[in-house]
């Protein structure tokens, strides 16, 4: 499944999608970024409510397929700028973290 297909299937909003055709391998959810770096695999969907600029660095270094911001959080401009520089796919979910995870889980089954 690609990031584009995931967004469509789960009803996620595209915030920034430089590489929507990237394949998704699995998923990891969390807000403590070192846990994410320690546990997330490459090509994962990274689900979080954290919206500071470090999220983009972590997404890039952990080489995840995309970030999904849950709870309809507002994505700050510096995060958008950093995602632009690093070519990181950003999506937004209008439902809380748990429901977002359930939706992604159903898609990846």
């Amino acid at each position: 499944m690609t990031v584009n297909e995931l967004a469509l299937a789960c009803g996620f909003e595209a915030v920034y999608l430089p590489d929507g055709e990237r394949e998704v391998g699995g998923a990891y959810a969390g807000d403590l970024l070192s846990w994410v770096m320690g546990r997330a695999s490459a090509d994962d969907v990274f689900i979080t409510i954290m919206t500071n600029i470090n999220v983009v660095a972590v997404a890039s270094l952990a080489d995840v397929a995309c970030v999904v911001f849950a709870e309809d959080v507002t994505v700050p401009q510096d995060v958008l700028d950093a995602a632009g520089r690093k070519e990181i796919n950003l999506l937004k979910s209008h439902v809380p973290m748990f429901e977002t995870c359930v939706a992604v889980g159903r898609c990846l089954k």
């Binding site: 403590l32 970024l33 070192s34 846990w35 770096m37 320690g38 470090n54 972590v58």
Partner: peptide, 15 residues
């Protein structure tokens, strides 16, 4: 509050 300080830094470096 910035998402760090969870006590995973050195363990991750080792991992």
């Amino acid at each position: 509050s910035l998402g760090f300080g969870a006590g995973m830094g050195l363990p991750n470096m080792k991992r």
